[in-house]
Amino acid sequence: MYSSSSFAYHLLLLLLSKSATNSVSAVEFPKPTPWPLQFHSILFVNYSGSLSIIDLWYDWPNGRNFNIIQDQLGQLLYDLEWNNGTSFVYTRDSTEKCRTSQLEVGILRPNWLDGAVYLGQQQVDGFLCNVWQKIDFIWYYEDVVTTRPVHWVFYTGRSIHVMTFEVGAVLEDIEWQAPIYCFEKARSHLKVDVWNPQPQGLKGI
């Protein structure tokens, strides 16, 4: 038979074991920080050696997202997206090129990373980052200290490095207006239906 002291000892071990199990099960993995409602960011993009810079303006309250894309030694493109699914990709030079489209979805929601799977921590671009994977579509890296996005990689291999991240920055309303020639498809010399630029923002994967 157990002595009272032996019984108390084993009871203590049982309680400690149960407490440790509960502590492990109660551990919560970090969750990605929702995007600010408005921000401005400069992004460096590498897609199999094809380089570009994206000047990104995100404006959720006004339902709009703007990617100004400069390919290396290439054409400057303006990729304007609205939350009603309307999208314009155009130039602002003498070529007056524009392509319009109507998508089934609008711009990314601030919490678009909800449900992403936490993969742990990794050093990226000199920052210690928490890493998440979203349905085999994107790998997202966020600075552990500041919770700012640092890097993300699409399943296609397109790699985006966040160079600046200005929370609350807003682009003037006049800059969000697509050129008049985007609305004049009847002008045959524009050839808006055959021009097929390849934007490289979040939707251009």
Rank of each mutant, 00 (worst) to 15 (best):
M1K: 09
S4M: 08
F7V: 05
L11M: 00
L11G: 02
L15E: 10
T21S: 02
S25Y: 06
S25T: 06
P30E: 07
P30Y: 10
K31V: 11
P32L: 04
W35F: 09
Q38C: 14
S41H: 12
V45E: 03
L51H: 15
S52I: 10
I53S: 11
I54L: 15
W57G: 02
W57L: 13
N62H: 12
G63P: 09
G63E: 06
G63T: 10
G63W: 07
N65T: 02
I68Q: 13
I68F: 02
I69C: 12
I69P: 13
I69K: 01
Q70H: 04
D71P: 06
L73W: 04
Q75P: 00
L76C: 14
L76V: 08
N83E: 04
N83S: 07
T86E: 03
S87I: 08
Y90R: 11
D93G: 13
T95Y: 06
E96H: 04
C98T: 08
R99S: 05
T100K: 10
Q102N: 13
R109I: 10
P110Y: 11
W112V: 08
G115I: 02
G115M: 02
A116T: 12
V117T: 15
Y118E: 14
G120E: 07
Q121F: 03
D125N: 11
D125M: 04
D125E: 14
F127H: 10
C129I: 12
K134A: 11
I135E: 12
I138G: 00
W139F: 14
Y141F: 12
Y141K: 06
E142I: 09
T146I: 03
T146D: 01
T146F: 08
H151C: 03
H151P: 00
W152S: 13
V153N: 11
T156E: 08
T156M: 05
G157M: 04
G157A: 02
F165D: 01
E166L: 08
E166N: 06
A169M: 06
L171R: 03
L171V: 07
E172F: 15
I174R: 14
Q177S: 07
A178E: 06
I180N: 00
C182N: 09
E184S: 09
R187E: 04
L190P: 00
D193K: 15
P197M: 09
Q198Y: 01
Q198E: 12
G204T: 14
I205S: 05
